[in-house]
Structure formats: C-alpha cells, structure tokens
C-alpha cells in the first residue's frame, strides 16, 4: 500500500511547497507582530473613540472565521475596490491580521506586567512617551511573552492549509494537485501531516528551551 518510490517522487515538490508554507507563516507572523503591537497601543489610547473602536475591530476579527476573512480579501475586495491582491499577499495579510488580534492581547498582558513605578520613574526622568515605550516598557514587556508569541507562530503555521482555499500553493494544495493527477491520496496527505508534525515539533522544542532560559533569567 505505501509506495516508497512514489514518496521519493513527490517529496521534492512537497518540500518546496513546505518552503513556501514556512515563508507565508513567517511573513504573516511579522505582520501579526507589528499590527498586534499597534492594536495594543490603540486599545490603550487615552482617547476613548480610538480605544473603543480598536476593541471593536479586535472583537470583529476574532469572531469571524479566518477562512471567511481570506476569501473576502482574495475574492470580494477586488470586486469592491478594483484592486486585486495576489494569493500570497492575501494569505499573509489575512493570516497576519487575524492573529494580530490575538497577539495584541498577548502584548497587553506583557505591558500590564510592567509595574506602574516604571512609568513613573520614566516620567520623573522626563522621558517622552515614545522614549518610555522604547527603552523602558517594551524591553520589559516583551521578553516574558516571547514563549507565548512562539506558540502562536506554531499555531499560525498549522493554520496555513486554510490558504489553499485561495489558491495559495502551500503544502496542502500541492498535495491535492498531486492527488488529482495520480489518484493516489494516501502518501501525499500522510507526508503533509508528517512534515507539519516535524516542523511544529522542532519549533515547540525551541520555544520550550527559550521559555526555560527566560525563566532562569528572571528567576535569578
């Protein structure tokens, strides 16, 4: 039933799709990191309309399925605006935007973990708001949340198969294409599962090591 020759035939194609999958994940993660931080800032804004609107946007994005969002970006947005986005960018933006709402929450917990006295010391030394964020708050808020951010990276990686729905040629779609040509489904899909497992497992080991290191550093 399991045909090793067939496996070696299709492996190169799947591996190059794996590269694409990892690349999409990383790009989307960077988008999520940046937009997540901006959302976290905006949600803290003293200006009520901004913070309320931000919280509304976060709730809206979280409570609609990712699949619907990427469909919207890829199929509906061009109809509405006349601008069509290539599948890769639609995938990166969709996945990144969706997870930015979760990362904003992670940032929030990190930022709230910084004692109030740190803000006050920064004011007493006449730091500007921007300087306070850059050199006092974020350097203390981010290290403790790095493991959580790492876990979200893994979650995002495992979400990428959704993007085959917008014709982004990641591993799942590649496997599907192979199956539709060879009519052999067992090996391609199994391989995709194994590849996901290997990468996720390695990544989670890395995150665990990072977490231990951070705890050691903070535990003193």
């Amino acid at each position: 039933m399991w045909d090793w020759n067939y496996v070696f035939d299709i492996l190169p194609e799947l591996l190059s799709a794996l590269k694409m999958t990892v690349w999409v994940t990383l790009c989307a993660f960077v988008v999520a990191l940046i937009i997540g931080l901006l959302l976290a800032f905006a949600a803290r804004s003293q200006w009520k309309p901004v913070s309320l609107m931000t919280k509304g946007i976060i709730e809206f994005i979280r409570n609609t399925p990712l699949l619907v969002q990427v469909f919207f970006l890829y199929y509906s947005l061009p109809l509405l605006t006349g601008i069509s986005i290539p599948a890769f960018y639609a995938g990166v933006i969709g996945l990144g935007l969706h997870y930015s709402t979760y990362l904003s929450e992670v940032y929030r917990s990190g930022i709230e973990g910084v004692p109030k006295g740190q803000w006050e010391a920064a004011t007493a030394l006449n730091y500007t708001k921007a300087q306070t964020w850059r050199s006092i708050i974020l350097p203390q808020a981010v290290p403790p949340i790095i493991p959580v951010l790492g876990n979200y990276l893994i979650v995002m990686f495992k979400e990428t198969p959704i993007l085959c729905a917008i014709t982004l040629v990641e591993m799942m779609l590649t496997a599907k294409n192979i199956v539709s040509q060879s009519f052999r489904a067992f090996e391609p899909y199994t391989l995709v599962g194994i590849l996901f497992l290997i990468i996720s497992y390695i990544a989670s080991l890395l995150v665990q090591r990072l977490e231990k290191r951070m705890n050691l550093q903070r535990g003193k």
């Binding site: 740190q118 006050e120 004011t123």
Partner: peptide, 16 residues
C-alpha cells in the same frame, strides 16, 4: 519637568 526630580519609596530602578 527639567527642573524637578523625584526619588521613590520603592526605588523604581530599571531592572533590565
């Protein structure tokens, strides 16, 4: 604020 400084009860040093 250039003219004013403060020392706090709980130091508030920057731990990093």
């Amino acid at each position: 604020r250039c003219s004013v400084g403060m020392v706090f009860q709980h130091f508030n040093l920057f731990p990093h």
